[in-house]
Amino acid sequence: MLEFKNVSFKYDEDDYKMLENLSFTVDEGDFISIIGKSGCGKSTVFRLINGLEKAEKGEILVNGISIEKQKNYSAYMPQKDLLFPWRTIEQNICLSMEIQKKSRSQMHEKAEEMLKEVGLWDYRNKYPKDLSGGMRQRASFARTILSGCNLMLLDEPFSALDSLTKISLQEWLLEECKKHNKTVLFVTHDVEEAIFLSKKIFVITDRPVTHFEEVVVPLSDERKREDMKRGDIVELKESLIKKLRQEGEA
């Protein structure tokens, strides 16, 4: 689905590299979280996949084709919901389809289905200012899904939410991703969130990033919140926190 081949990258204003010869693969249907301390390059990986930054060296492939040769291959959901305040919720979630020049009836049909699914049908004519933080994130997620791309890049989408909303949205996200059979790359600071959501976790421990340390999460697809209390999961959580701390101190 997604492949990084020896990718190196440096921001123009920096005198150090963010990524050096980084290679990794994400398979179709995977839910992978990337964790690491602030500024370690998590979001840079997303910017490279999105085409917002260009790799100095190496190649990024989606479905075996270089990203430079294609458009609309990934759907990005940023940390802030970035709903356009002048658009109603329905108009907001149609944004990516509008850019893809879909017909009005097609957009309306898909928007109706999605708004009902995310529980925002009654709010379709409201403006973002009228919605709570959780509802706005659901609208933002709906917009991301409606872009029609199978590869979803979610950049700390729940970091600004209160803990209860966050928990319910995490459970909701798992259901939605399963239902739509999406491949998800999820950036987070929250180790527990990474374990609960992912099949695999990529841990960034070095700088410049030369590799991801891959951790497989021993939870089934039918995971429950209570699973987080299991001994092996608590142990995994502790070991990941330790790893990140060590890296922070290094």
Binding site: L52, K71, A75, I99
Partner: peptide, 18 residues
């Protein structure tokens, strides 16, 4: 104009006109 919103549109394949 919000840079983040502009980048979001670019990820959707938006042109300068969009």
């Amino acid at each position: 104009t919000s840079r983040e919103m502009e980048e979001l549109l670019i990820t959707y394949g938006a042109t300068k006109k969009d």
